[in-house]
Design a binder for these strands. Sequence first.
DNA 1: GTCCCTATACTCGGATAGCAAGTGTCCGAGTATAGGCGG
DNA 2: CCGCCTATACTCGGACACTTGCTATCCGAGTATAGGGAC
Lengths: 161, 161
Amino acid sequence: MSQGVEWALHCCTVLAGLPPERTLPSARLAEYHDVPPAYLAKHLQALSQAGIVESVPGPRGGYRLARAADAVTVLDVVLAVDGADAAFVCTEIRQRGPAACADPSAYPKPCGIARVMWAAEDAWRQSLREHTIADLLGTALREAPATQMVNGAAWLGEVMR
Amino acid sequence: MSQGVEWALHCCTVLAGLPPERTLPSARLAEYHDVPPAYLAKHLQALSQAGIVESVPGPRGGYRLARAADAVTVLDVVLAVDGADAAFVCTEIRQRGPAACADPSAYPKPCGIARVMWAAEDAWRQSLREHTIADLLGTALREAPATQMVNGAAWLGEVMR
DNA sequence: GTCCCTATACTCGGATAGCAAGTGTCCGAGTATAGGCGG
DNA sequence: CCGCCTATACTCGGACACTTGCTATCCGAGTATAGGGAC
């Protein structure tokens, strides 16, 4: 799984903690998480194209969540960054080789192996669908050390636009 | 996900259909599935190292399942081929940046984001754990076209050692 | 003092190199077999 | 005719190139702002 997924989820959590309509530039998000700014920008682009965050150009611009934090699931973010393609791709090798049946219509149902793999992916997606960015923010606010809470609030007060 | 997972699952299914103690060389398995023999051998090696299949060297040698087909889960095969590492790796970026707390002991629990991602992976693993190679063989025998059943049995009768 | 215009600086967005892991292939080590030889 | 030995051929196992996708970076297009000038 791509490294950008972790960054994207952390960024969305931070954006969810901002006051409404306020934005944060990608450079500030990179600074907050101590990650390469240019590379993080690429992933935020993906979030923007997926309609998860909105971009505001120009000075006092930046990113903000495009929807309410409880309307953005973790799955939405993961699919936006890593792509929506299924991890397991069935190449239908059962229809190849010396024993295969030449007529494709003889295989009406998907390969049983693919069905099992896809069912597991569905379980994975369902699990990610049950958690939203609002949940992540709530957990972070509940479990973060007091020092980080104070430092984070102070830092935000300085850089927020 | 690696291409080899699909091949490995199909190979295990074929091996599960063999009479007890009989083996099938990797070259025959590659021929049956019409895949590059040398590359398939590499994946079968991984299955062998994981203790899922047993290898018999020399003439009349080959591979066979190391355990009963209903004692090998799909998860076993997937982990053997693709590696057992978690797909999502938490780099603890919450402990970096200007707002982070310097003392690592201030973060007793794993990051909330990682917990959500790992829970989804557990759901995925659990789903794969619920299906065995015996299930895959049963589905294949039940759903395969009659032509393929006949061709496959004839081909096996010729090449099986 | 107010309005307008312009230059500025800051933002995002897509196009461009570098690297690691998966993909694909090969040849060498080891072994059960099959045939030949001796008794 | 039987047993043993040797050469063979076939198997797996690990070491070696190549390609795709992730990692990382940069510069250009567009915009709200801030300041200055005119009225």
